[in-house]
Amino acid sequence: MSADAIIKVKDLSAGYGETALLEHVSFEVKRGEVFVILGGSGCGKSTLLKHLIGLLPPLAGEVLIDGGNLASASGEERQKILRRIGVGYQSGALFGSMTLAENITLPIEEFTTLPPEAREAIAWTKLKLVGLENFTAHLPAEISGGMQKRAAIARAMALDPQVLFLDEPSAGLDPVTSAELDALILQLRDALGVTFVIVSHELASIYAVADRVIMLDKKAKGIIAEGKPQDLRDNSKDPFVHKFFHREAA
């Protein structure tokens, strides 16, 4: 195991109840890396993500985030680990009754001693980060789907986490907005050293941002390929990986 790994997944079996979608999965994510989880529909990408962020307990194995185990931690220790991560959900999952600024100030208010005007100033900077500084007083329902996704990233960034997990960040976005989001991910990584774990199957975005990818497979119940996306595209002998990267029908 390398020392600069911020996430270590060891022999993880992931799934719901008794049903394991993935078995004996092991991988590491390095600090400052943009790591993408790929795979066909129903292969367990989102399930794996839920295990990584502690929403589901592992059926077997463990997930360590900066040395902390979310599944077994409780109380303050769990809060400490959660402070290191931010999650951008596929649908945004913004709180509908709060403005965009309030969505961001909520975790800041709960977990820091910053005064109200500081919280508001931070909310503005986070929204500026995603180009929504003119929408601080808007409710999520009053902005477009793409804007909601960007606002969700701003909220995930509220406490300046070390790791950002993003579930399908580019899905449903137009190519221009999608490219802007890719640029933002790279900027955050370069400027702040944020580590990204992204679930996606938008090939253009994957090529643009991913340092490394793992590809999951339903039948294999695990990782069938790992490496740089361009390498997998050009050199993989696995028929599914080849079809995936060349957009060929099964």
Binding site: A121, T125, K128, E133, N134, A137, Q187, L188, A191, L192
Partner: peptide, 15 residues
């Protein structure tokens, strides 16, 4: 700069 150091907050954003 990324966090908005290059621009001034715009009060018109407030309803």
């Amino acid at each position: 700069e990324l966090f908005g150091g290059d621009v001034e907050p715009d009060d018109t954003a407030k309803k």
